[in-house]
């Protein structure tokens, strides 16, 4: 699957580009070659899906209400403005 002599992109190169591919940020992403690679590499397809879950994990971290005492101190600070 990962033949160095193949004109297809090797896995080692593809995994460096999957985050940017998913984000569509375009940095150093050769979308056409990544698409071509994904069409034949199930492992990299699995990795792409995993990166999507990883991204969801990061996005789910937004609110942290586990510091009520700190919030209360800051509220008092606001009152004293």
């Amino acid at each position: 699957m990962n033949d160095k002599h193949s004109p297809l992109m090797p896995c080692s190169e593809a995994i460096q580009q999957l985050w940017d591919y998913l984000e569509g940020s375009g940095r150093r992403v050769d979308r056409e070659r990544v698409d071509e690679h994904l069409a034949f590499c199930r492992r990299c397809c699995g990795e792409l899906e995993f990166i999507g879950h990883l991204r969801d994990l990061l996005a789910s971290q937004t609110i942290d209400d586990s510091r009520p005492q700190a919030v209360q101190r800051l509220e008092r600070f606001l009152e004293e403005l």
């Binding site: 971290q61 937004t62 609110i63 942290d64 209400d65 510091r67 700190a70 919030v71 800051l74 509220e75």
Partner: peptide, 8 residues
């Protein structure tokens, strides 16, 4: 209203 988010 923004304190929890700012603190996070």
């Amino acid at each position: 209203s923004q304190l929890p988010r700012l603190l996070a």
